[in-house]
C-alpha cells in the first residue's frame, strides 16, 4: 500500500493538522508520501521531509496553487492519486473543499472526517453531529479520506529525512479566481472551528461578570461559548450558545466555567478532546465528563488561571 497525504500549509509553514493526518496514514500502514502543492513553498516541503515516517515529499510549486483553490489542486491530486491506494487530507475547510472533488475525478467515494482506522479499508466516522458513530468500509480501489485532527495524535515533526521531488503542475483554465482573504488575526476564532473554547454558564451571575470569560478566552486565543442558561439569563449573545440547539463544538480544549453541565450542553461539547470544568458545586454533572475538574469559586480561580498562563 502507498499513501499520499495532502499537506495543509500557507506556503510558509506546514500546518500541524497535517501531522494528525499522517498519524492516520501510519495507522493504515504502508509507504507514506506527502504532497506539498503551493507557490514558493519550498520551505514547507522541507518541513514535511523532516517529519518522522515520511518516505518522500512531492512538491508542486506553481502560481496556480498559491491559494489552494480546489479546481486546479483536485486535477493535480487526481492525476497523482491513481498511483496510490489511499489519499488523505486533514478534514479542515481546505481538505473538505478539495477532497470530494478529487474523489469524483477518480470515480470513487470520499469518506469524510474519519476518527479511527480499523483496517486499510474500514474506518469510523461520526454521523448525526457526533450522536452516532458509523463504521464504513470502502469498496473502491483508491480510498479518499479526510481525517479529523482531534481524533489522531500528531506524529513527530522531526526525525525524518525524506527526499523532495518536484512534480509538474498541470495547466488549468482559470474559471475561479482568488480575490482576497481576511484571516482573523486579533479577533477571536470562530466558535465552531476554534481549537480552544472557553464557555461560561449561569455561575457567572451577570453580563458584567461574563467579561471574565472573554478575558480568559483572549489569553488563550480561544473562542467564547456559553451555556443556554447563561444565554437565557441575558449574560451573553445567543450566537455563543454551545449545545443541542446552539453550536456543536469539538475543540482540542474546552474550558467550562460556572457551567453545571445540563445534558443539552453536554450534547454540544462532549466530542471535545480535553474538557476542563471549573465549578464550585462538586456535584455538578459537568464533572462527570471533565478530564480535569477544579472545584473552586470561579471568581477566584479564573483570575488566578489568567495569571499563570
Amino acid at each position: 500500500m502507498s499513501i499520499l497525504v495532502i499537506a495543509e500549509h500557507d506556503n510558509r509553514a506546514l500546518n500541524s493538522v497535517t501531522l494528525n493526518a499522517l498519524q492516520a496514514a501510519k495507522a493504515i500502514g504502508g509507504e507514506i508520501q506527502v504532497l506539498v502543492a503551493g507557490h514558493h513553498c519550498q520551505a514547507v516541503a522541507e518541513q514535511a521531509a523532516a517529519v518522522a515516517g515520511v518516505s518522500k515529499v512531492l512538491l508542486a510549486d506553481s502560481p496556480a496553487y498559491e491559494h489552494r483553490l480546489a479546481e486546479p489542486l483536485s486535477k493535480l491530486i487526481a492525476t497523482l492519486g491513481k498511483d496510490y491506494s489511499h489519499v488523505l487530507a486533514p478534514a479542515s475547510t481546505s481538505g473538505k473543499n478539495l477532497m470530494p472533488r478529487v474523489a469524483a475525478l477518480l470515480d470513487v467515494a470520499q469518506i469524510s472526517d474519519i476518527t479511527a482506522v480499523l483496517s486499510s479499508d474500514t474506518f469510523q466516522r461520526p454521523i448525526y453531529a457526533g450522536n452516532a458513530v458509523a463504521t464504513v468500509q470502502s469498496l473502491d480501489a483508491i480510498k479518499v479520506l479526510t481525517v479529523r485532527s482531534t481524533a489522531f495524535e500528531a506524529v513527530a515533526a522531526s526525525g525524518g529525512a525524506a527526499a523532495v521531488e518536484a512534480v509538474t503542475a498541470s495547466a488549468v483554465p482559470e474559471r475561479s479566481r482568488f480575490v482576497s482573504e481576511a484571516l482573523a488575526v486579533s479577533d477571536r476564532p470562530n466558535l465552531g472551528s476554534a481549537k480552544v473554547v472557553v464557555s461560561g454558564g449561569r455561575g457567572l451571575g451577570s453580563a458584567e461578570n461574563f467579561a471574565l470569560i472573554e478575558q480568559l478566552a483572549d489569553k488563550l486565543g480561544a473562542a467564547v461559548g456559553a451555556s443556554r442558561a447563561a444565554v437565557d439569563a441575558g449574560f451573553t449573545a445567543n450566537d455563543r450558545q454551545v449545545g443541542q440547539t446552539g453550536t456543536i463544538v469539538a475543540p482540542e480544549l474546552y474550558l467550562a466555567v460556572g457551567i453545571s453541565g445540563a445534558i443539552q450542553h453536554l450534547a454540544g461539547m462532549k466530542e471535545s478532546k480535553i474538557i476542563v470544568a471549573i465549578n464550585k458545586d462538586p456535584e455538578a454533572p459537568i464533572f462527570q465528563v471533565a478530564d480535569y475538574g477544579l472545584v473552586a469559586d470561579l471568581f477566584e480561580a479564573v483570575p488566578e488561571l489568567m495569571r499563570q498562563l
Binding site: T245, A262, I263, Q264
Partner: peptide, 14 residues
C-alpha cells in the same frame, strides 16, 4: 433536564 432532552422539545429561541 435530561428528561426534557428526550422530548425533542425546541422553540425558536428569540
Amino acid at each position: 433536564l435530561s428528561s426534557v432532552f428526550l422530548s425533542n422539545t425546541n422553540h425558536e429561541d428569540n
